[in-house]
Amino acid sequence: MPTTAPHLSPLCELPVGATARVCELKGDENFCQRVREMGFGEAALVTKVSGSTTSLCQVNGTRIALSHDAAMNILVERLPDSAR
């Protein structure tokens, strides 16, 4: 298992309203592939819309709901609010 860079945090911990860049996908390979295919891959920009356990995110103009375990496996880097 590759070690995770310290500045990365799981998507589920991203506060509502914050924007982040997807940096790393962990866990089941099938899941990672599907996330990438849905345009949620590395380098995608994601904004958290709502949710603490189940996350609701905006990616490329699409609303996507992710269960807690799914959001745990998407590691993101939070962007400063001014970069949005």
Partner: peptide, 12 residues
Amino acid sequence: GAPPMMILELPP
């Protein structure tokens, strides 16, 4: 099984 991984698109 593994914990459920849901990824679901919400249409407008």
